[in-house]
Design a protein around this nucleic acid. Sequence first.
DNA 1: CTTTTATTGTGAAAACTAATACAATATATA
DNA 2: TATATATTGTATTAGTTTTCACAATAAAAG
Lengths: 211, 211
Amino acid sequence: MVMNRKCIIRLSRYKNALKRLKALGFVKVFSGNLADAAGVTSSQVRKDFSLFGITGNRRGGYKVDELITKIREILGKNELQKVVIIGVGNIGKALLRYKGFEAGGIKVIAGFDIDSTKYVETSEVPIYPLDNFREFVHDHDVKIGILAVPDVAAHHVSEIMISAGIKGILNFAPIQLRTADDVVISNINLEVELENLIYFVNAQGKTEEGA
Amino acid sequence: MVMNRKCIIRLSRYKNALKRLKALGFVKVFSGNLADAAGVTSSQVRKDFSLFGITGNRRGGYKVDELITKIREILGKNELQKVVIIGVGNIGKALLRYKGFEAGGIKVIAGFDIDSTKYVETSEVPIYPLDNFREFVHDHDVKIGILAVPDVAAHHVSEIMISAGIKGILNFAPIQLRTADDVVISNINLEVELENLIYFVNAQGKTEEGA
DNA sequence: CTTTTATTGTGAAAACTAATACAATATATA
DNA sequence: TATATATTGTATTAGTTTTCACAATAAAAG
């Protein structure tokens, strides 16, 4: 079992690239095509594939359809993945409405909030009180949750999520969640990302001067 | 000039942790405190600091205020950083309204869209037609842009951004942007993040069984 | 059918990143 | 002031990830 996060992320990117290539009519691809599309080297592509036991034909490349299927298998995406969102503020609401997931086999099936003015059970994706969370997660066998509450609430809510049975959290709150070993956390911190950009843009300016 | 992205991201995290510790009344901290708050080891903290020439006192730790100032300097955050958003859909709108940036010295000063029904010049953050982009970027000396348009438009819009003088792009579109060397791109791909979580949650399940 | 050619698959080398260990030393204590 | 102690700063070691290089081989060409 490959536990290298970067490698899994590249696998997702290969899959996305393959979908685009397929839409363009490609039936088979070479490692170099995928490398270009995903912004890596061809040997990186082949090495990644070899880690997962994905093989092609020497001199013949890889068949697009087979590759997509195999990658989806590895990523556990051949069955629909149900996701819930906790915190229906700016970000949470945007993700509830975002249509981009469904094509990829991910479906946001509900939102939860403590603010009762946000409850809407009739909309496309219903929004329930946080009190209903545990029952909902149990009934629908949900394993993945998106945490989009303000930072002061984040740790408390994450504990609610975990105790309800959530095993993977995509955390938008700008704090470092500390959790049990069997729960996987992915952090998206927009301020950190922007600070990163600012640093490298400034650095770029400096090295350009120097060159 | 440190060019290790992970290291810069940790620096941002240290800064955030320091702000929290300061709010709790801390005047000085030890590498171990920061390590705990940021979820790394203490030697990692010291190694990172040493790369940037940040020094403390042996046996005395680091002064919180000095540290924050130095990190902000390194990150280029001692002056207000102006950011624009291109694409005022679900995600773009959420980021326009998001209040979390300002405390960190980042200000979203405008949004842009091709859809004329979205123009609002009177709201807190004005939304203009994309045609005004080049002039606005020039007038306000903006260097950082958030790209939040649908994937089919992303590459075209990124070219408009770069030709207008944008040097750093935070890209939410699920494609790999290809750009000039002097432009820095950071990608946030929510589907990829979720796929990653799904993989590791499944993997967790498997290793648990095996154990 | 034989030769040439392009591409895969992977072991080995290189580059990069993190952890360990400990000397140097500032602060605290007696 | 002298001694003990806790913490930094960094050289070294270990670990991880990527690139390189090339044998194996399938397809194409002759």
